[in-house]
């Protein structure tokens, strides 16, 4: 059974490319464009991993993660931040990123699709 990923990407066209690459790598992708859609998804699915843009319409990533971590089922899911921001813009969130269980930060400008796929695989929880 394929692993489920929740992909939160505000740009629908860019999101479709990431989803296609992840699907080809064997994942099932649930796509959301913003925090609202992602939280809505929490009612019906518990993904194995979350890939999210930090800058989302109406919210930043920390607001979403605080909300998400308050759901018991979602408290341990590994989160990869995959962002168009640069490292210095995220520096002020360093504490929050660690506290909220972000396992990796990838930058869209420099990290290729294959790197994203590799990192997702590395951080997936191991089945007991």
């Amino acid at each position: 059974m394929s692993k489920q990923l929740l992909l939160i990407e505000p740009d629908r066209v860019l999101g479709a490319i990431y989803a296609r690459a992840l699907e080809q790598a064997g994942f099932e992708v649930i796509a959301a464009q913003n925090a609202e859609q992602a939280i809505y998804a929490a009612d019906s699915v518990t993904p194995d991993s979350i890939i999210m843009e930090w800058e989302m319409p109406g919210h930043n990533g920390s607001a979403f993660l605080y909300e998400m971590r308050s759901h018991a089922d979602w408290s341990e899911i590994p989160v990869i931040v995959h962002t168009r921001l640069q490292a210095e813009s995220l520096a002020k969130f360093e504490g929050a990123l660690a506290q909220l269980g972000v396992v990796e930060v990838l930058y869209k400008s420099t990290h290729r699709l294959q790197t994203l796929i590799n990192r997702v695989n590395e951080h997936l929880p191991v089945a007991v």
């Binding site: 740009d11 860019l14 490319i17 690459a21 080809q24 168009r84 699709l113």
Partner: peptide
């Protein structure tokens, strides 16, 4: 301008993977 450039970069990468 990052948006179209990202689109072009990742689309070409995806096309090469297929």
């Amino acid at each position: 301008l990052k948006q179209p450039l990202l689109y072009i970069a990742r689309s070409s990468e995806l096309a090469l993977m297929e």
